Simulated scan of single mutants.
Amino acid sequence: MNTIVAIQSLRPRAVAPRNANFACEHQGPARNVFSRLWRRYCALAAMRRSRLALDELSKYQLDDIGVTEEEARREAAVPFWRSRLL
């Protein structure tokens, strides 16, 4: 038995990952509504995360992107339900 075969036989065998099926079983209009709601939620969550990140920037970083502290704090204070999606 050569060295490589001996080393490979000592390694634990990887367990094959299970394929999780999170697909929506609904067809037609119900599926379309759920997918639109999910996309809307994801977009609102992304905007909220970017607003929170904007709130954490220093004055120097805000000057670098051309935003005043007042504008940044005002935008960070906007609740997610008042967000406008393009």
Results as ranks from 00 to 15, higher is better:
L10Q: 15
M1G: 13
R74T: 10
S35P: 03
T3L: 15
E25P: 02
R82S: 08
G28R: 10
R74A: 10
C42T: 11
Y60K: 11
F22P: 02
R11S: 10
R73C: 02
E56H: 03
Q8N: 14
R40A: 15
G28V: 08
R39K: 13
N2T: 06
R31W: 01
M1P: 14
A53V: 02
L54S: 01
L52C: 06
A14H: 02
W38F: 10
E75Q: 15
A20N: 12
Y41G: 09
A45E: 14
S50M: 10
L44P: 01
L57Q: 06
A30M: 13
M1W: 09
A14D: 11
A6H: 06
R31H: 10
R39P: 02
I7V: 07
I4W: 05
C42K: 11
E70L: 05
R84W: 07
R48V: 02
R49S: 06
R73G: 08
R51G: 06
N19I: 14
E25A: 06
A43I: 02
L57E: 01
M1E: 12
S50Q: 13
I65M: 15
R36V: 13
L85S: 03
S9P: 01
L37E: 09
L54Q: 01
I65Y: 04
R36C: 05
R51V: 04
D55Y: 04
I4H: 07
N21D: 15
N19R: 15
N21R: 15
F22V: 00
M47H: 07
Q27L: 05
F80G: 00
S50I: 02
S35M: 12
E56Q: 12
A72D: 02
V15G: 06
A23H: 03
L52Y: 04
C42P: 00
A46M: 02
R13P: 00
S83K: 03
L10R: 15
C24Q: 09
E69V: 10
Y60P: 00
E56R: 07
R40V: 12
F80W: 03
A23F: 04
E69F: 04
P17Q: 07
W38S: 14
D55M: 04
R18M: 08
Q27C: 07
F22D: 01
D64Q: 12
E71L: 01
A6R: 07
V33K: 06
A46W: 00
I4Y: 08
N2S: 14
R51K: 07
R84Q: 13
E71K: 06
S9C: 11
C42W: 02
V15L: 13
P12L: 13
F80D: 02
E71D: 09
R74Q: 07
R13S: 05
